[in-house]
Design a protein around this nucleic acid. Structure first.
Lengths: 221, 221
DNA sequence: ATCGGTCTGTGACTAGGTCACAGACGCATG
DNA sequence: CATGCGTCTGTGACCTAGTCACAGACCGAT
């Protein structure tokens, strides 16, 4: 994306007045990051407000014992809202952001971000809306980690991660990291799903056979 | 607090220019809420940005099965930062805020908030800093719920909640709700702490006898 | 003194996380 | 093709935490 029309990728920004959009486009730059890039993390503070044009970024929290849990994903058209709040505040961001695919993004410098927040009600709305979605989602995750059964959460996650062809290309270890659980536990649950004929598994791939059954379980209290 | 000098309670706001502070003080009002008041929750969206002059507000998340977990507390001198983000965005706030003591607070209307964000870099810094502290704390809670042992978390919580005289005035049920655990589990852990001589318990009250021992456990990985 | 509500204790059981280790699979290399 | 290696998966034994059912204990009000 060498052109300057990336604003069109973000519905919340289309309504920006030209005198607002101009400095935004002029001071920000489009960056391309290969899959696997660590974008921010402890000891690597983010330095700009990121808007994703293409690809996804996975934000996860690692425990001292080496276990992990995925907090959320930033997809095309969205922004790294929480990262930025921490960028604007003083606090060290403890989570880690990894490019899950090749990523194309707009990097808005901190000073431009602050300027836009001051000058545009539209931009404020865009930022705070993104914020509220993330925070609400974090609350949901806390509730699920604390109170939901692992089989229900796994069923939800499989449906969420399923690509075309109802295929989930993840190892048991990766699924465990998604949910903050352990590999063995995920393996046993998957065995049980398979025994019931809901999925078919092979090395690194899970095929969903009976999505309805999974949805039914995922909707359980 | 009938006077208008409440701004002095908030270090982050002292530096506001007079022409900024004036509309802030004029359009906001000081409210007093008795202990136990439900300030916001599902179906009861907050309608203003709250700055606490005195008292504490407990923000918690309830599960469908009736269990609860405390997300954070807002104390005197702090703001309901996350609530407001959700207020400015569109998302329904799923958590619940309860006045834990009698509360005295400044309610800043949404329009004034938006105006201040636009006009004052100081105010923006104040808001985003509050934000980042809360978000960072949420990440810590997710990590602890997912990966930490309940005895370690209970020891931390006892130390955190201890009032003067090293006394914690909570029932087992309340402690369980703090941690998102179950009453019986908390009771057994407390029994074990007592057996080791670290605490002394009676109905509704826990006395910390050996704070050092609890600190030691709380610092465990 | 008794009653009712709240708070606490306990045993039996289930779910989920931990540990140790054994195979199985896929792929590169000789 | 055979070999070897790293990754991925399966399994049993065990431990921790949460669930369920129920029994008492405490405490203030009548």
């Amino acid at each position: 994306m060498t052109s300057k029309d990336w604003v069109a990728h973000f519905p919340g920004l289309k309504a920006l007045a030209p005198e607002i959009a101009k400095p935004l486009v002029e001071t920000s730059r489009v960056v391309v990051l290969p899959a696997g890039t660590r974008i921010f993390g402890p000891g690597q503070a983010p330095d700009a407000y990121l808007l994703l044009i293409d690809g996804t970024v996975r934000v996860q929290q690692a425990s001292s014992a080496g276990r992990e849990i995925v907090l959320y994903r930033v997809s095309a058209g969205e922004s790294c809202a929480l990262t930025t709040a921490c960028l604007m505040g003083y606090e060290e961001y403890q989570a880690e952001g990894i490019a899950e695919t090749d990523v194309e993004a707009v990097a808005i410098p901190r000073s431009t971000f602050d300027d836009l927040i001051a000058r545009s009600a539209e931009f404020r709305r865009f930022v705070f809306t993104a914020f509220s979605v993330r925070v609400t989602n974090l609350f949901r995750i806390i509730e699920e980690v604390a109170f939901s059964r692992i089989d229900v959460r796994l069923a939800q996650k499989l449906l969420e991660l399923a690509g075309p062809g109802a295929q989930v290309e993840r190892t048991h270890q990766q699924l465990a990291a998604e949910l903050g659980s352990a590999r063995e536990v995920i393996g046993r649950q998957l065995n049980e799903f398979q025994r019931r004929g809901w999925i078919a598994t092979s090395r690194g791939v899970i095929n969903i056979v009976r999505a309805e059954a999974l949805k039914n379980l995922a909707a359980a209290p």
